[in-house]
């Protein structure tokens, strides 16, 4: 009797540590994204290197967490909500890692633009706004995971629609620019890459939120359209 109590609390501790690791990885990704945005706004390409370095740590954490998940499943055979938590986590880390990769793409795009001697400032406002929105989505998705708050998760899923709309309007604007003045094409293509990466970060935040809803409610609302998040 005593032993089983001990084991189950040990199990709880394992799960709680796993969650903390996921959130730490999330923290690294948040930092990467916000550093990438800063680099875009200020043109300080020195931070690009640290973003790439952080990515290495994110990758390591991803592998370590996946490993922990496999261990927990093999050793503890979790059921019901515990099992959903472990399954959800293994998907969340994939999305976080990809979001980190997108941040790296932004950083590299910024470096290309500034090293080419261009200033992206004329598109600055739109892109920065898009980036702030994506960053706040990823932050809220992680908050929702930490608090297992499905309402917050749903609001992140809804916010993704706005980010998509804004992304499309930036692309339209860039197309106009390129048609007016072909000399801007090189820079514009780089900026499209950056905007695309930001939009993808929003998508990953949405996926994380969907997993949070799965973990809490056991409902899989992927590919069900935004009505599912009402």
């Amino acid at each position: 009797m005593n032993e089983s109590v001990h084991l189950s609390s040990q199990f709880d501790e394992d799960l709680s540590r796993l969650r903390t690791h996921v959130l730490q990885m999330g923290g690294l990704v948040e930092t990467q994204v916000s550093a990438a945005i800063d680099a875009y706004a200020t043109g300080e390409i020195a931070s690009v290197k640290s973003i790439v370095e952080t990515d290495r740590r994110v990758n390591e954490l991803e592998k370590a967490i996946d490993d922990d998940c496999a261990h927990i499943i093999a050793k503890r055979q979790p059921t019901a909500s515990d099992l959903r938590l472990v399954l959800g986590i293994s998907k969340i880390v994939t999305d976080l890692e990809r979001a980190g990769d997108e941040a790296k793409k932004i950083a590299k795009g910024v470096r290309r633009i500034y090293e080419g001697g261009h200033m992206p400032s004329q598109y600055g406002v739109g892109i920065r706004h898009l980036a702030e929105a994506a960053l706040s989505m990823i932050r809220q998705a992680l908050d929702a995971f930490a608090r297992l708050d499905t309402e917050l998760a749903k609001s992140v899923i809804r916010a993704d629609t706005d980010v998509d709309t804004e992304f499309k309007s930036i692309i339209r604007q860039l197309i106009t620019h390129m048609m007016e003045d072909p000399r801007t094409i090189t820079t514009s293509i780089d900026i499209i890459t950056i905007a695309r990466a930001i939009e993808r970060i929003g998508d990953h935040a949405k996926n994380v939120s969907e997993q949070v809803i799965y973990v809490v409610d056991g409902r899989d609302i992927r590919h069900m359209g935004k009505e599912a998040a009402q």
């Binding site: 903390t20 730490q24 930490a146």
Partner: peptide, 22 residues
């Protein structure tokens, strides 16, 4: 960015996730 109502008992690094702080 804490909410004590929901965050009591939560490891603080779950909410303040900045790597420097951790």
């Amino acid at each position: 960015g804490l909410v004590i109502r929901t965050d009591r008992g939560q490891p603080v690094v779950n909410m303040v996730r900045q790597p420097e702080f951790v």
